[in-house]
């Protein structure tokens, strides 16, 4: 019960901020009082079923059961770029169109570890790039590639260890990092594959990127990850796209 209050409260609060609404504006959109919004956000009570579905519809949440996780996928990410506000979305949007990116979902395990070990540093990194941490609520949000590498640098600075042993439980619960390799086989196949290749999360990220994405990484960022950037298997990553001709 408390967990659900926390998750719904955080979803209401974070998505409202992401879209740049005040509590009053959100209340008006959802046809409830400002006090109701405030109480949901403050985790005083969980919303009623109708309010929850109005919220799901208004913000385009893809999974109505996301109150179990406290994170969400949004139907129409580009709408965020068109929001009639200035702020982080205005900064990231043009970058996103020009540069490659990874989703928050794919970065899930890395972010989870960093949130525990370096919460302030994440905030600073995002802030430097014109973003706020609320963006991390949206699992299908595209994080620009240079910010992704900034997160990895941060993980090295904080000496956060990423290996498959501590990532696997999260993967099995929430299906995080291996989604780009769905055609490769079972989870055991993945584990075996990465053990015999890179053997850690950096390897996973490397294999998940396209060749162009890897080549596009600035030289100064490439250096710490040199050992992971060799032998890039070009046939993986975009193979599926070449096979489906709809």
């Amino acid at each position: 019960m408390q967990e659900m209050k926390t998750h719904t409260g955080s979803l209401f609060r974070n998505l409202r901020k992401l879209f740049g609404y005040t509590q009053m504006e959100m209340a008006s959109r959802l046809n409830v009082s400002q006090s109701t919004i405030s109480k949901v956000e403050s985790e005083v009570f969980v919303p009623e079923l109708t309010l929850w579905f109005d919220f799901v519809r208004e913000f385009g949440l893809l999974d109505p059961y996301c109150f179990y996780y406290g994170t969400a996928e949004l139907r129409d990410i580009p709408n965020l770029f068109d929001a009639n506000k200035t702020g982080w979305h205005g900064v990231w949007a043009p970058k996103h169109k020009k540069k490659m990116s990874m989703t928050v979902r794919a970065l899930g395990p890395l972010l989870t570890h960093l949130k525990t070990h370096a919460p302030m540093q994440i905030k600073t990194l995002l802030s430097k790039n014109g973003a706020t941490p609320v963006v991390l609520t949206v699992l299908n949000y595209p994080v620009p590639w240079d910010v992704v590498w900034g997160l990895f640098e941060l993980s090295q600075d904080c000496k956060v260890s990423f290996n498959l042993a501590n990532l696997a439980p999260q993967q099995s619960e929430q299906g995080f990092i291996f989604s780009r390799f769905s055609t490769m086989g079972t989870r055991e196949d993945y584990l075996e594959f990465f053990r015999s290749h890179a053997g850690d999360y950096f390897g996973t990220i490397k294999l998940g990127a396209t060749k162009e994405e890897v080549e596009g990484i600035p030289a100064n960022l490439k250096k710490p990850f040199r050992k992971y950037l060799s032998d890039y298997p070009a046939h993986i990553g975009r193979a599926r796209e070449s096979q489906l001709i709809a």
Partner: peptide
């Protein structure tokens, strides 16, 4: 209307979708 947690309990107990309630 019922609180979301009660709806979630119903959904789980009877294996029905939240929306189908």
């Amino acid at each position: 209307d019922i609180p979301l947690d009660s709806a979630a309990n119903l959904s789980k107990t009877f294996n029905v979708d939240l929306g189908s309630l």
